[in-house]
Design a protein around this nucleic acid. Structure first.
Lengths: 344, 344
DNA sequence: AAAAGGAATGGTAGCGCTATCATGACAGCG
DNA sequence: CGCTGTCATGATAGCGCTACCATTCCTTTT
């Protein structure tokens, strides 16, 4: 009877957005049938389904995902937390994740910790509040509060980048082994005075792990393993500057093992500008396998890490888990490849 | 009386997560007061506030943002839609956005269209369903459905990357002018046989706009403006390969104006490998001002576009608008800078 | 023919939070 | 002393959707 809402005691609808009930009414079915037509199409008759879809089209209905998530306590959101977007490595992992997750209808909620574990905790708290269906985070290190919070969370957690025993799922590579690999290569090439150069190893602790591997190999041969730690972020510029610094501190240096390709390429290009011969005067090695390294002359010796692949695999495994399938392995090693160029 | 829920007719709580009501009970206040203590701290007495915060701490309460958003039809989510993550340009804009938005407590919902406007429409639909408080999208071109959908949406919309009359807010630069700028520089340097090389200009239509500017300048001088369009994405590799192609198609070429620095740097490095002198045999220019261009020899002539700055400014203007302040200008030109290196 | 099973649909009651209005307490005012 | 205004708090009623159970109608089984 009271069609018009003049008395409308407690009207609260702010936006005049179309609701599922209106769609249902237009389609001549109950709201719950309309809901099913959209979310479980196989559970309604074809006639109901088509009339609902028509009504959706006609009214321009946009499902309120917030309401849906609250009612079902599920969502198609996946939280992705990385320490930095400046470092292209993480971006490439995100790329791989994004590609795979979006294809399955998931949306990415992106967070950046700036290498701050407390910040990470705050982000995790916020993201859990969105009842994400999973969380992907870069690295195995978290602060205590974060650890407890996540332990009590009953959704999949995927830790990427480095290999190890995580909280739940893990896709990554063994950075210590990568460091050993490159150090071994340098020694095999006959170099004995080898410096490792990294940038902010306390933040980029994976580069620190590579140094650990590097050091072990050298020490096993009775060789010193000097470390030069830069206080800037890794970049071509920083690499160029570090070259000078290394040669001043350790004039006998024959080879430099850089923590990443940006540094290494920066140093290589700087060496050329200074008329130094690579690898004759100084050998240079990097890590990551960025395209840039293949385009400089001589080509950069580096370790190729499958970053996008890591993202894709992580996403795939996560989806597997989310769709209720059995997970046989929680740890996945994506490996790495030594790429020998002319720079060593 | 009935404290235990044995008969529990229609219990539906799936997760045993702490709710605000439990916090309120522990703090000895009503749920609404607890809500206020957390969201409008100045609207409750200090005693209430502290006891609520204590209870939150003690119980490890994590606010359910989904429920909050539904009730208030507001959220701290901001949708960000870009055409690609492979192109670092967009990533840098995201970086700028992210930095500024996260500092203000906003979360980013990230979408990638893969240069497909229909995909963009789908993403927009989905994101509107999350009742985002704003939407940021790269570019001014959208399909019709998307346009209508967004016109009826009553939240701020920010279109970035290129300058022009958008739907709402806009931060970007004039790509036609940038193309003109570089073409003028090349002509001033005395080059007359100039080829423009771009990759998939129908997708990267902003590179196409730069070509338009380039062409106009050349034609005004009565010079031909040949275009070589590559079918791959812009990359060092593609740039290296295109060099050959250009020299075969247009043997007289004196200068190549590349659509971006990746292509240009790839070509420059390839030229060096082939023993060609840059700029003596062939001059090379790019666009973007990537760090790489400053580290090759000779330095790459390019146009510096303030990408992170664009993201930061866009985020700032958006926040301004979201906090209800007056917006005086809807369009913001971030400009560009010609960087002359030794390559032209 | 009666019982049992299945498919399509709907009614009801929340999900956890906040907007709205109502209340009571107390200060300031003429 | 009543009147108005401000402040802190609370009761109530949703936000738009879906889980859960119930109902109906039809097909299959013994």
């Amino acid at each position: 009877m009271s069609r018009d809402s003049t008395q409308a005691s407690k009207q609260r609808r702010r936006s005049d957005q179309i609701t599922l009930s209106q769609v249902a009414q237009a389609a001549g079915v109950s709201p719950i049938t309309a809901s099913r037509a959209l979310n479980h199409p196989d559970k309604v008759s074809e006639s109901a389904r088509t009339s609902v879809l028509e009504a959706v089209e006609q009214l321009g209905y946009v499902p309120n995902l917030v309401a849906g998530s609250l009612a079902s306590s599920r969502s198609k959101l996946i939280a992705v937390i990385v320490p930095s977007l400046i470092n292209t490595v993480f971006v490439e992992v995100i790329k791989g994740l994004q590609e795979t997750l979006e294809a399955e209808g998931y949306q990415i909620l992106l967070g950046n910790t700036d290498y701050d574990l407390d910040r990470e905790y705050q982000l995790v708290r916020t993201f859990l509040g969105w009842s994400c269906s999973a969380l992907i985070t870069a690295g195995l290190r978290h602060n205590h509060a974060c650890q407890t919070l996540l332990n009590n969370w009953d959704h999949p957690i995927m830790e990427v980048m480095e290999l190890g025993k995580g909280m739940d799922l893990n896709v990554g590579l063994d950075h210590v082994a990568a460091g050993r690999c490159m150090a071994t290569h340098l020694i095999d090439q006959g170099y004995r005075h080898i410096v490792y150069v990294g940038a902010r190893l306390s933040q980029d602790y994976r580069a620190g792990m590579r140094y650990e591997g590097h050091k072990k190999v050298l020490q096993a041969k009775g060789i010193e393993a000097p470390l030069v730690e830069l206080d800037t972020l890794g970049s071509l510029q920083a690499g160029a500057e570090s070259l000078q610094q290394v040669l001043t501190l350790y004039p006998q240096t024959q080879a430099i093992h850089f923590a990443n390709d940006d540094l290494a390429a920066g140093a290589l290009l700087a060496a050329q500008r200074q008329g130094l011969n690579v690898p004759g005067d100084i050998a240079i090695a990097g890590f990551n396998g960025l395209p840039l390294g293949q385009h400089v002359t001589p080509q950069l010796t580096t370790i190729l890490s499958p970053r996008e692949e890591m993202g894709r695999l992580a996403a795939k495994e996560l989806i597997r888990r989310l769709s209720g399938k059995n997970v046989y392995r929680r740890q996945h090693d994506v490996g790495f490849t030594l790429q020998v160029g002319g720079s060593t």
